[in-house]
Design a protein around this nucleic acid. Structure first.
Lengths: 188, 188
DNA sequence: AGCGCAGTATACCGATCGGTATAGCGGCAC
DNA sequence: GTGCCGCTATACCGATCGGTATACTGCGCT
């Protein structure tokens, strides 16, 4: 593995285990068996490394979500596809999803939160567009697409959090449960 | 306000805005208009300050939850009381709940997560006991009390997160929605 | 008056922080 | 061969990190 990939990999391991602020550049380069100028050659700064890491590691989810969140007339089917996309990604990218989740709940003015804001805004928007499109067929949903996107994502993250802590396995049964639980919330 | 309370207050403001690791002791004492030895006189260490802050600020929630989570035969009524306790607390302790939420999702080996583990374990256990007691009347729940507690808390936190970001107001209607959404998840 | 002690400030500690100036390396183009 | 360039190491920067040794103050107790 080339040094660039090695740095990204070690940074993810360390940050997901102990946090972005708590792990310094020095420790990352030592863990990768290289020195600081190499890291700064590829990424320019600690924040640049974080941005690159998020950019590359979230690409898979971005693509999968782009396909899954297209509304084609059946809201439940679409939502199930979205949940499946998230679950698949979280299952095969545990440490990264852990880090992303931590950043999402991190203070608004922290580096970590800022770094994923742009990416998650994209995810959020895809979901909002989905609920906006669905509102044409479900009149009672109109105007609440932002709240729906936030609630739905929150529920997905709740289940992924359960999985990351060993309380649940992200299988089809849980996909079904999550979607129907969410739909029930809408109509109650 | 005495210096001790002043330190706690400033530390909460700064940590909830920018994170525990990102805000140093120096900045806290400057914000409080005092000097480091004063802080170390009262709290012994940065971590000691964090522990004291969590201990004092979470006392209200601990008490309210202790009363609300007692099972008296009607699960829905009890769960509504629990949700109300959380919502009330979060509504009047926004910055603290923000910080607690960030620590809950923070990496397992970070100071912040370690600091709230004991407290949240208590909250978790109160909920687990509730679901265990309810399982006597709802046979299909037996053996899943840990997962139920985690899911329920996750849903509560989802709604509080919505509120903290301006997407929802934690009123009685939302209490009703959260509980029935959760119950629907159990029976589906 | 004199003692003790909680509380506070000045000034400092070694370690680590993110980041860089400089120089050397190997491989490729000419 | 020679010049360039991508990459890497040694050694360093000022700033900040969490924490402390020392001394002073003011108040309560006797």
């Amino acid at each position: 593995m080339d040094n660039r990939s090695l740095i990204l990999s070690r940074a993810l391991d360390l940050w997901s285990e102990r946090g972005y602020d708590a792990v310094g550049v020095q420790e990352i380069v030592e863990s990768a068996g290289i020195t600081k100028p190499t890291l700064y050659h590829y990424f320019g700064s600690k924040r640049g490394l974080l941005d690159a890491l998020i950019d590359e590691r979230s690409a898979g989810l971005r693509n999968a979500l782009g396909k899954a969140a297209e509304y084609r007339g059946d809201l439940v089917v679409t939502l199930e596809a979205v949940v499946r996309a998230y679950f698949d990604f979280a299952r095969s990218n545990g440490p990264y999803y852990r880090m992303q989740l931590a950043f999402w709940f991190a203070p608004e003015h922290s580096d970590g939160h800022q770094a994923i804001l742009a990416r998650n805004a994209g995810q959020h928007q895809a979901l909002e567009l989905l609920f906006e499109a669905a509102a044409n067929d479900h009149g009672n949903m109109r105007g609440r697409h932002r709240a729906y996107a936030a609630t739905f994502l929150g529920m997905i993250n709740t289940y992924i959090g359960l999985h990351l802590n060993g309380f649940a396995s992200l299988d089809d049964q849980l996909v079904y449960q999550a979607v129907h639980q969410f739909m029930h919330g809408i109509y109650s």
